[in-house]
Design a protein around this nucleic acid. Structure first.
Length: 885
RNA sequence: GCGGGCGUGGCGGAACUGGUAUACGCACACGACUUAAAAUCGUGAGCCGUUAGGCAUACGGGUUCGACUCCCGUCGCCCGCACCA
């Protein structure tokens, strides 16, 4: 069945829902979500409900979901993400906050160029068409977004300011050009930042990356390494997991640099170590195959060159690395031990030393490092223990195949003897510094951020290269540097570089012929500051200080955990760098972060062909899953993240056409906790749809049976029945509010079900007196308000049916009456020796003695006590009485 | 290997700060309405047992009047990082 056919079939109900004859016979019509949702979306739009302006007299709340890449269609992950954000936005607005909730497009990137190449569509028109389509899909979700602040990073009105910010960074020394080994992605034909290499492969293409030496632009994120690390401690509304991942990525290590003199030479080898306390146990020096010393050796020694080539060929990817044997090539160089006069150490090129960490060279201390030990055993090097574990005897302690890597007492180590590891580290560091052979140091794993990409569809780097003047900033009056439209994508490599004229310009400084930078920015640059641009998206400056000072930080940011390092770390850096050059006043852009789980679905496969099948190609016959077309058996696989490759996808627009936006929103919020993965099922959607219909029916039937509800006012006296209903309403308010505050949307959904169930139990003829009508009115009003953030269209429909002329979207959140959320009776569990024997009703906060007496009088309690006298009675007021015998 | 998370009915999950385990939903069964079905409404249900009761929150211990919750150990699953010196 095509999507269109499904949509037509589902226009007014779920599959195989009601027949027309039945609907005609019914006294009430079914809730028509298609009509209602369009109506209320138009009403919100006409009233401009969700537009936000700076207003320092009101408390602000900035809710942001990670903006989407305009691939063309929204997927269920978007639906889940944006629904959660929308619940928060609508709730906070109702709670009186001035809410900023914008939407935009992360619009640069390689897929547009691939589309250009494959379908002969210009990246710009491909992108803008996709945006138009996705915007329409998002609008149908009924999101409380301020569309007047929409932005797209591919628009010159956005990237112009990015170029300004970059030039500010350049001037402040935060951006620089450097020749370095870079990660080259042979498929995407561009370089990648360290963070974008996963298991030795490009994050997007999946191709094994190659090392190339190129001159590229970097941003000085390492200037902020310490601060980015320290400030994690203050991000108390971030998931612990994300903070840990960033901490590991930044990778701070304290230790020392040690510079070893080389026998008969003037230069030295510098190593980094976290264990200067083990220096006396050194038995060799090892350098990376990419180290300068290794390269030098390769020129003179073909065997060294061969070894290096072998190491590079082995690659650095995947589990193969783990199994890889420690191997080395001995050089004709000896190093002098700085703390042991006369002692020299052999120098090796070793396959396990990484050029990108520390200095690309180490000293080997086999007794106290497993890798060094493996290496030493292979090449028959000395193993001298210098750290004695607590409780071991110096005479008998020996290292065989397992290195001792913990702390202990230092021995065999000259002036360090007798010290504990910590003190020895300090003393060794101080001694090295005194001798000029090294110094205590702290290093970071974090590297500077490589932002050059050899691509067309990105923000041009606003630099002109001049033979005489070097790299020169494009003057402000010439910004933006626009992308040329007339480019071709047939040739591999960078289309901007291939363009016949674009790069040829005069040097702004000396006027001589010069060349434009043809690299564009990594698209993570675009997304590193969009949250700030949203505060004043049309301003002539990158940001309007008054606006960002009012709106930032983002109070609640919501997105996928896959951005835990890349995007979130870059954005934290950008905030600091933008502060340094005067655009912002704060360091941390996101005060609160929530990472939502993925949307999963079962997978289906045809065992005959091995092809994956779409959920709509499959149907259930009894307990068997079969192909809808042929009836052939299929294999049902485990539930996995929805993905095009496994075809376990359900398109949001089909669901919205068939069941409405409210149903889709309700379903993604129900059942699974938001931080966990959720399972998309047809039955679940239908359950949500049925509930929406049930709410509408409940409201309609009550109003039909009791027209007095609409005008009901608070009467002088309350009946018990009315008070009971009022309690249910106020408990629901208190519970749902608390759940939304704590991001427990699935619990809020469950509470609303319970509340609706309670209303459903009210008999038709009951509560027809003034008190009852008032309680009924309050209940329906409460129901509409509580579902408001989740099913906003149905909520408006109910709200209007209760006689309101205002929009629920502009109505304050209800307050729970504290008197009504506490019962005057408590159900108390009675235990004997911790086992439940009875439950009894007691007046709330009754005397302990009363509780005890009542408990001991219970028949089941007496039976369980078996004639024994109570040794002790534990009374927890309003909860439990435990009789210990 | 290092770091983190998780383990509760047939399924998704709830249970606040240690106080009635299994809320709520899905699926299921039965009943009502119907010529019939769908939709809707109602009822039931952790397991064993006729009842009394017993046993159950991955497994084994511990602390406590009382443990899904805290502590120790074991097993399993998931995620991140990884030759990081």
């Amino acid at each position: 069945m095509t999507n269109q056919a499904v949509a037509e079939k589902l226009v007014d109900g779920p599959p195989e829902a009601g027949h027309d004859s039945e609907r005609n016979r019914s006294t009430m019509s079914r809730y028509n979500f298609l009509e209602a949702e369009a109506k209320w979306q138009a009403a919100w739009s006409a009233r401009n409900c969700f537009a936000s302006t700076v207003d320092p007299t009101r408390p602000k709340y900035y809710v942001l979901e990670m903006f989407p890449y305009p691939s063309g269609r929204i997927h269920m992950g978007h639906v889940r993400n944006y629904t959660m954000g929308d619940v928060v936005a609508r709730y906070k607005r109702a709670k009186g906050f001035n809410v900023l909730h914008p939407m935009g497009w992360d619009a640069f990137g390689l897929p547009a160029e691939n589309a250009a190449r494959d379908q002969k569509i210009h990246p710009a028109s491909w992108t803008y068409d996709n945006i138009a389509n996705m915007r329409a899909e998002l609008k149908r979700m009924g999101l409380a977004l301020d569309w007047s602040k929409e932005l797209a990073t591919c628009h010159p009105g956005y990237y112009e300011h990015q170029q300004r910010i970059f030039l500010d960074f350049f001037q402040a020394g935060l951006a620089y050009r450097k020749e370095a080994f870079v990660n080259w992605d042979p498929i995407d034909q561009t370089v990648l930042a360290n963070e974008q290499v996963i298991d030795g492969r490009g994050w997007r293409s999946g191709a094994p990356v190659e090392k190339r030496k190129l001159s590229q632009w970097f941003l000085k994120i390492t200037d902020y390494a310490e601060d980015l690390l320290q400030a994690l401690g203050g991000l108390d509304r971030w998931p612990e997991k994300v903070r840990l991942m960033q901490e590991n990525w930044i990778g701070k290590s304290t230790g020392a640099h040690v510079r070893f003199k080389l026998v008969g030479r003037d230069d030295r080898i510098e190593v980094f170590t976290t264990r200067p306390d083990t220096l006396f146990g050194a038995s060799f020096i090892a350098v990376s195959p990419d180290h300068a010393i290794a390269e030098e050796a390769a020129k003179a020694d073909p065997r060294a060159a061969a070894f290096i080539a072998e190491c590079r060929a082995a690659g650095t990817s995947e589990a193969a690395v783990e199994a890889q044997e420690k191997r080395g090539h001995k050089l004709a160089i000896e190093a002098e031990h700085p703390l042991m006069p006369g002692k020299t150490l052999p120098v090796y090129i070793a396959n396990f030393v990484l050029i990108e960490y520390g200095t690309g060279a180490i000293f080997g201390c086999p007794a106290h490092d497993q890798r060094d030990l493996d290496f030493a055993r292979k090449y028959d090097l000395t193993v001298t223990p210098v750290v004695l574990p607590h409780g071991e005897d110096a005479q008998t302690f020996a290292v065989a195949d397992v290195a001792y890597t913990d702390d202990g007492t230092i021995y065999n180590s000259g002036f360090l003897d007798g010290l504990d590891s910590e003190s020895a580290k300090k003393k060794a560091g101080a001694k090295l510094k005194e001798q000029g052979d090294g110094a205590p140091t702290t290093i970071f794993r974090l590297r500077d951020w490589l932002v050059s990409r050899q691509r067309y569809w990105g923000c041009p780097i606003p630099i002109i290269h001049c033979e005489a003047c070097g790299p020169v900033a494009v003057p402000a009056k010439d910004l933006p540097v626009r992308l040329p439209d007339d480019v071709t994508f047939e040739k591999p490599g960078n289309p901007l570089d291939h363009h016949p004229s674009w790069k040829h310009v005069a040097c702004p400084t000396c006027g001589k012929a010069a060349r434009r930078e043809t690299d564009t920015f990594d698209t993570f640059v675009d997304s590193s500051w969009y949250f700030a641009r949203f505060c004043s998206p049309r301003d002539e400056q990158p940001v309007d200080r008054a606006a960002v000072d009012y709106w930032l930080p983002v109070d609640q940011y919501i997105g996928g955990v896959e951005h835990a390092i890349l995007h979130l770390l870059y954005s934290r850096f950008f905030a600091r760098a933008m502060k340094k050059v005067g655009h912002l006043s704060l360091d941390e852009p996101f005060a609160g972060l929530f990472t939502q789980g993925m949307v999963c679905h079962e997978t289906y496969r045809d065992p005959a062909t091995g092809d994956w099948l779409l959920p709509e190609q499959v149907e259930r016959r009894g307990t068997q899953m079969v192909r809808a077309d042929t009836g052939g058996a299929i294999e049902t696989g485990r539930s996995e993240k929805m993905s095009k490759s496994k075809k376990n996808v359900v398109a949001p627009d089909v669901i919205i056409d068939g069941y409405g936006a409210d149903t889709a929103r309700w379903f993604v919020l129900s059942d699974s906790p938001p931080e966990r993965d959720m399972e998309w099922t047809a039955a679940g959607v239908e359950g949500a749809w049925r509930f929406a219909q049930r709410l509408w029916r409940l409201c309609f039937l009550w109003l039909e049976a009791h027209p007095g509800i609409v005008a009901a006012t608070l009467p002088d006296t309350m009946s018990d029945a009315a008070t009971a209903l009022r309690r249910a309403s106020h408990k629901a308010i208190a519970g749902v509010s608390d759940d939304i505050e704590k991001f427990r949307f699935n619990r809020a959904v469950a509470r609303i079900y319970e509340f609706a169930n309670a209303l459903g139990e009210v008999a038709e003829g009951d509560l027809a007196d003034p008190a009852g009508l008032f309680a009924r009115r309050e209940a329906l009003t409460t129901l509409a308000q509580l579902i408001g953030p989740m099913m906003p269209h149905l909520a408006e429909e109910m709200w209007a049916s209760l006689g309101h002329r205002t929009l629920l979207a502009e109505t304050a959140w209800p307050e729970a009456d504290p008197v009504l959320i506490i019962d005057d009776q408590a159900t108390v569990a009675i235990q004997v020796n911790g086992k439940l024997r009875a439950t009894i009703q007691l007046p709330r906060d009754c005397d302990r003695q009363v509780a005890e007496t009542r408990a001991l009088a219970e028949e089941a309690v007496i039976r369980a006590m078996d004639g024994k006298a109570p040794k002790k009675v534990v009374v927890v007021p309003n909860r439990i009485v435990n009789v210990v015998v």
